[in-house]
Simulated assay, not measured.
Amino acid sequence: MITMDNIIRDGHPTLRKTAEEVVMPPSDEDKQILTELLEFLINSQNPEVAEKYGLRPGIGLAAPQINVSKRMIAVHIVGDKGELYSYALFNPKIISHSVERAYLKSGEGCLSVDESIPGYVPRYARITVKGFDVDGKEIKLRLKGLPAVCFQHEIDHLNGIMFYDHIDKNNPLKPIEGAIEIDS
Protein backbone atom coordinates (compact mmCIF):
# COMPACT_ATOMS: atom_id res chain seq x y z
CA MET A 1 0.00 0.00 0.00
CA ILE A 2 1.27 3.46 -0.94
CA THR A 3 1.25 6.01 1.89
CA MET A 4 2.45 9.62 2.15
CA ASP A 5 5.85 8.20 3.18
CA ASN A 6 6.24 6.76 -0.34
CA ILE A 7 5.60 10.10 -2.03
CA ILE A 8 8.79 11.98 -2.79
CA ARG A 9 8.84 15.73 -2.30
CA ASP A 10 9.67 18.70 -4.47
CA GLY A 11 13.41 18.92 -5.02
CA HIS A 12 13.90 15.15 -5.42
CA PRO A 13 15.76 14.53 -8.73
CA THR A 14 13.30 11.86 -9.96
CA LEU A 15 10.59 14.53 -10.23
CA ARG A 16 12.66 16.32 -12.89
CA LYS A 17 13.47 13.26 -15.03
CA THR A 18 11.66 12.15 -18.16
CA ALA A 19 10.10 8.82 -17.19
CA GLU A 20 10.72 5.65 -19.24
CA GLU A 21 8.02 4.04 -21.39
CA VAL A 22 6.50 0.92 -19.83
CA VAL A 23 7.15 -2.13 -22.01
CA MET A 24 3.92 -3.74 -23.21
CA PRO A 25 2.61 -6.17 -22.20
CA PRO A 26 3.25 -4.86 -18.68
CA SER A 27 5.10 -6.95 -16.11
CA ASP A 28 3.32 -8.11 -12.95
CA GLU A 29 5.42 -5.63 -10.98
CA ASP A 30 4.34 -2.72 -13.22
CA LYS A 31 0.69 -3.81 -12.97
CA GLN A 32 1.02 -3.88 -9.16
CA ILE A 33 2.49 -0.35 -9.06
CA LEU A 34 -0.22 1.00 -11.38
CA THR A 35 -2.97 -0.63 -9.30
CA GLU A 36 -1.49 0.80 -6.08
CA LEU A 37 -1.38 4.33 -7.54
CA LEU A 38 -5.15 4.20 -8.10
CA GLU A 39 -5.77 2.54 -4.72
CA PHE A 40 -3.90 5.39 -3.01
CA LEU A 41 -6.21 7.97 -4.63
CA ILE A 42 -9.37 6.05 -3.74
CA ASN A 43 -8.15 5.62 -0.15
CA SER A 44 -7.07 9.26 0.11
CA GLN A 45 -10.59 10.39 -0.78
CA ASN A 46 -12.18 8.16 1.88
CA PRO A 47 -12.12 10.27 5.08
CA GLU A 48 -11.84 7.27 7.45
CA VAL A 49 -9.04 5.53 5.53
CA ALA A 50 -7.24 8.85 4.90
CA GLU A 51 -7.29 9.66 8.61
CA LYS A 52 -6.18 6.17 9.64
CA TYR A 53 -3.14 6.23 7.32
CA GLY A 54 -2.48 9.99 7.35
CA LEU A 55 -3.16 10.42 3.62
CA ARG A 56 -3.54 13.79 1.95
CA PRO A 57 -6.50 13.70 -0.44
CA GLY A 58 -5.43 13.48 -4.06
CA ILE A 59 -7.14 13.26 -7.45
CA GLY A 60 -4.08 12.20 -9.45
CA LEU A 61 -0.75 10.46 -8.89
CA ALA A 62 2.11 9.63 -11.23
CA ALA A 63 4.70 6.86 -10.74
CA PRO A 64 7.63 9.35 -10.57
CA GLN A 65 6.00 10.76 -7.41
CA ILE A 66 6.71 7.44 -5.68
CA ASN A 67 10.25 7.45 -7.11
CA VAL A 68 9.43 5.05 -9.98
CA SER A 69 10.58 6.76 -13.17
CA LYS A 70 8.11 5.01 -15.49
CA ARG A 71 5.22 6.36 -17.53
CA MET A 72 2.27 5.43 -15.30
CA ILE A 73 -0.49 7.63 -13.90
CA ALA A 74 -3.71 7.22 -11.97
CA VAL A 75 -6.63 9.64 -11.80
CA HIS A 76 -9.71 9.35 -9.59
CA ILE A 77 -11.96 12.35 -9.99
CA VAL A 78 -15.59 13.35 -10.47
CA GLY A 79 -16.36 15.48 -13.55
CA ASP A 80 -18.70 18.48 -13.65
CA LYS A 81 -21.69 16.28 -14.48
CA GLY A 82 -21.03 13.93 -11.56
CA GLU A 83 -19.40 11.24 -13.71
CA LEU A 84 -16.47 9.32 -12.23
CA TYR A 85 -13.16 9.31 -14.06
CA SER A 86 -11.20 6.53 -12.42
CA TYR A 87 -8.27 5.45 -14.59
CA ALA A 88 -4.86 3.91 -14.17
CA LEU A 89 -2.84 4.16 -17.39
CA PHE A 90 0.48 3.02 -18.77
CA ASN A 91 2.22 5.31 -21.30
CA PRO A 92 -0.51 7.99 -21.44
CA LYS A 93 -0.12 10.54 -24.25
CA ILE A 94 -2.09 13.62 -25.20
CA ILE A 95 -2.86 12.90 -28.86
CA SER A 96 -4.91 16.05 -29.51
CA HIS A 97 -5.92 19.20 -27.67
CA SER A 98 -8.00 22.34 -28.09
CA VAL A 99 -6.52 25.72 -28.91
CA GLU A 100 -8.71 27.09 -26.12
CA ARG A 101 -7.15 27.23 -22.66
CA ALA A 102 -8.52 26.65 -19.18
CA TYR A 103 -7.27 27.02 -15.62
CA LEU A 104 -8.41 26.20 -12.10
CA LYS A 105 -9.68 29.30 -10.30
CA SER A 106 -8.24 27.98 -7.03
CA GLY A 107 -4.87 27.11 -8.62
CA GLU A 108 -3.30 23.63 -8.57
CA GLY A 109 -1.74 21.61 -5.81
CA CYS A 110 0.41 18.50 -5.79
CA LEU A 111 1.01 15.64 -3.36
CA SER A 112 4.76 16.16 -3.91
CA VAL A 113 4.57 19.86 -3.03
CA ASP A 114 3.89 20.55 0.64
CA GLU A 115 3.29 24.29 0.44
CA SER A 116 0.56 26.14 -1.39
CA ILE A 117 1.87 27.90 -4.52
CA PRO A 118 -0.60 30.54 -5.66
CA GLY A 119 -1.03 31.18 -9.35
CA TYR A 120 -2.98 30.20 -12.43
CA VAL A 121 -1.72 27.24 -14.43
CA PRO A 122 -2.67 27.47 -18.12
CA ARG A 123 -3.90 24.14 -19.49
CA TYR A 124 -5.71 22.99 -22.62
CA ALA A 125 -9.50 23.21 -22.19
CA ARG A 126 -10.05 19.86 -23.96
CA ILE A 127 -7.71 16.96 -24.59
CA THR A 128 -7.78 13.45 -26.00
CA VAL A 129 -5.55 11.00 -24.13
CA LYS A 130 -4.47 7.57 -25.27
CA GLY A 131 -2.88 5.00 -22.97
CA PHE A 132 -3.09 1.39 -21.82
CA ASP A 133 -5.00 0.02 -18.85
CA VAL A 134 -3.62 -2.44 -16.29
CA ASP A 135 -4.28 -5.34 -18.67
CA GLY A 136 -2.48 -3.62 -21.56
CA LYS A 137 -5.72 -2.78 -23.41
CA GLU A 138 -5.67 0.55 -25.29
CA ILE A 139 -7.90 3.27 -23.82
CA LYS A 140 -8.81 6.56 -25.49
CA LEU A 141 -10.42 9.36 -23.45
CA ARG A 142 -11.86 12.72 -24.47
CA LEU A 143 -11.66 15.06 -21.49
CA LYS A 144 -12.58 18.59 -20.49
CA GLY A 145 -12.84 20.60 -17.29
CA LEU A 146 -11.20 19.34 -14.10
CA PRO A 147 -10.49 15.82 -15.47
CA ALA A 148 -8.59 17.36 -18.43
CA VAL A 149 -6.55 19.57 -16.07
CA CYS A 150 -5.78 16.61 -13.81
CA PHE A 151 -4.59 14.39 -16.68
CA GLN A 152 -2.34 17.19 -17.99
CA HIS A 153 -0.86 17.70 -14.50
CA GLU A 154 -0.07 13.98 -14.15
CA ILE A 155 1.32 13.62 -17.70
CA ASP A 156 3.57 16.63 -16.96
CA HIS A 157 5.06 14.58 -14.08
CA LEU A 158 6.13 11.96 -16.63
CA ASN A 159 8.10 14.66 -18.43
CA GLY A 160 9.77 16.15 -15.36
CA ILE A 161 7.49 19.20 -15.32
CA MET A 162 5.94 20.58 -12.12
CA PHE A 163 2.66 22.54 -12.18
CA TYR A 164 4.28 25.74 -10.92
CA ASP A 165 6.64 25.74 -13.95
CA HIS A 166 3.60 26.99 -15.94
CA ILE A 167 2.71 29.87 -13.58
CA ASP A 168 3.57 33.40 -14.74
CA LYS A 169 6.41 34.29 -12.35
CA ASN A 170 5.86 38.07 -12.65
CA ASN A 171 2.08 38.03 -12.23
CA PRO A 172 0.91 34.62 -10.94
CA LEU A 173 -2.73 35.66 -10.47
CA LYS A 174 -3.16 37.46 -13.78
CA PRO A 175 -6.22 35.93 -15.44
CA ILE A 176 -5.32 33.93 -18.54
CA GLU A 177 -6.80 35.77 -21.50
CA GLY A 178 -9.59 33.95 -23.31
CA ALA A 179 -9.31 30.91 -21.02
CA ILE A 180 -12.15 29.09 -19.28
CA GLU A 181 -12.05 29.48 -15.49
CA ILE A 182 -12.81 26.16 -13.77
CA ASP A 183 -14.19 25.97 -10.23
CA SER A 184 -12.62 22.97 -8.52
Rank of each mutant, 00 (worst) to 15 (best):
D28M: 08
E29D: 13
D30F: 04
T35K: 15
E36S: 13
L37M: 06
L38T: 06
E39K: 15
F40P: 02
F40Q: 01
N43L: 00
N43M: 03
S44N: 11
A50Y: 11
E51S: 13
G54K: 12
R56A: 11
R56G: 07
P57E: 02
G60P: 06
A62R: 01
A62E: 00
A63N: 02
I66C: 01
V68G: 07
V68Q: 14
K70C: 07
R71G: 08
R71T: 04
H76Q: 02
G79Q: 05
D80S: 14
K81R: 14
Y85F: 14
S86M: 09
K93L: 09
S96G: 05
V99W: 13
V99H: 12
R101K: 15
A102M: 12
A102T: 08
S106C: 01
S106I: 00
G107R: 02
S112Q: 00
E115Q: 07
S116K: 15
I117N: 01
P118D: 14
P122T: 05
Y124S: 14
A125W: 04
A125H: 10
I127C: 13
I127W: 14
T128L: 09
V129M: 12
G131Q: 05
E138H: 05
E138R: 11
K140E: 15
L141E: 10
R142V: 10
L143F: 14
